[in-house]
Write a protein that binds this DNA or RNA. Sequence first.
DNA 1: GTATGTTTTTACCAACCGGTCAAATTATCA
DNA 2: TGATAATTTGACCGGTTGGTAAAAACATAC
Lengths: 227, 227
Amino acid sequence: MAGDRGGTGGSEGMAVPRAAKTQRRTRIQEEKEERILDAALEVFSSSGFRGATIDQIAEAAGMSKPNLLYYFRTKEAIYRTLLESMLFTWLEPLKAIKAEGDPESEIRSYIRRKLEMSRDFPRESRLFANEMLQGAPHIEDDLTGPLKALVDEKAEVIRSWIKAGKIARCDPHHLIFAIWATTQHYADFDVQVCAVLGEKRSGEGRFEDAARFLEQLFFEGLRTKQA
Amino acid sequence: MAGDRGGTGGSEGMAVPRAAKTQRRTRIQEEKEERILDAALEVFSSSGFRGATIDQIAEAAGMSKPNLLYYFRTKEAIYRTLLESMLFTWLEPLKAIKAEGDPESEIRSYIRRKLEMSRDFPRESRLFANEMLQGAPHIEDDLTGPLKALVDEKAEVIRSWIKAGKIARCDPHHLIFAIWATTQHYADFDVQVCAVLGEKRSGEGRFEDAARFLEQLFFEGLRTKQA
DNA sequence: GTATGTTTTTACCAACCGGTCAAATTATCA
DNA sequence: TGATAATTTGACCGGTTGGTAAAAACATAC
């Protein structure tokens, strides 16, 4: 508990090499820690916390288990580090919603951004999904705290747009859920999506198709225009 | 491989008590197997296959591990049984879509049914989600086989509705994905939904709100009617 | 070179895990 | 009642798991 930490400023037992008397953080430390976190993301995101093993992570990171444990003291420490940094970037798109912007294009680009995250960071999405499925034991506080606060804030923004008649009357919270669900689905259920679309349509182009569809869904709905 | 099976007609090593010479399936067998499957659903759905342990399941089922293994020979056997029976009921709502029906009300009741499943069988939904996150190692064949076939068939139905001008032009597959995503979200991400909605709105009434919102989303979209 | 600090490896441990086995217990029925 | 079959239990096994201890290997500064 005492003395100097690594510097990343995180929770207990995390990324604190045994000794750090001369320098705060060497090049090699950062590099190795990054490799570990990358490997851990791979393993945790597909097996969940309980299902993942340190050995798997160590092997994926190309080092021995004790060597890995030299950088992160416990399995939990790796997991928490991963979750924390993920949660932050994960909420960026939502934070980016501006009350002063044009409602329709704000929502449109929010959807687009979230979809891009599913395309570019599917492992992060699956890590989060796994944590949710397990009942969010590691991030309960974040959910009811900062996350809820942020969502409530943005829900209020949406509500103001509704009041101004800029978008249709609807429940803002459920709108946000729907955006989360539809976009993250392409990362979390990727196997299913690819299996169902078949070989021809499951290439990277599926994200274009998805974007087109979601844009239409959220703004036009399914009803035909002519009566 | 030889001889008589239990009767549930499943895959290898499943629900085959050591001896079955007089009767095919006793009352006590069915009852115990049900208790095991219920407990297993609880554990698997929140920890995934790898993360779950036989001991956990046995304890949740109120019996010793060897006793549990008397009814199901392996952990995998329990899991497969669970997945199989789940997949079947899980696709019922999709199967129920009738090409001859009114497009809008067919889709509407499909959404409603799926949402009801999330409300009434959240564990089954999470089990499925967990399997997907792990890359669907146990049901790959089902995905590319029967499931794809069914989805393709219903996608064709939707396409015919579009051609007939009954619903707006859109990609049927992605429409189905969107329905899956939005409805299952309320089961899979239940913790998050409840945390974000807060204590007041996270009661059972949230499914009513969700139903109302989704109905609007899918048919009206967010655009206001007056220009 | 040596001294000092950092990183990696080898060997190891106790707890846990999936699963087996044989014996003990309980139900069934003549 | 005893005989027979179904169920349950306790002891156990080899492999895995999260994690430790100590020493070896490596880097660096002097």
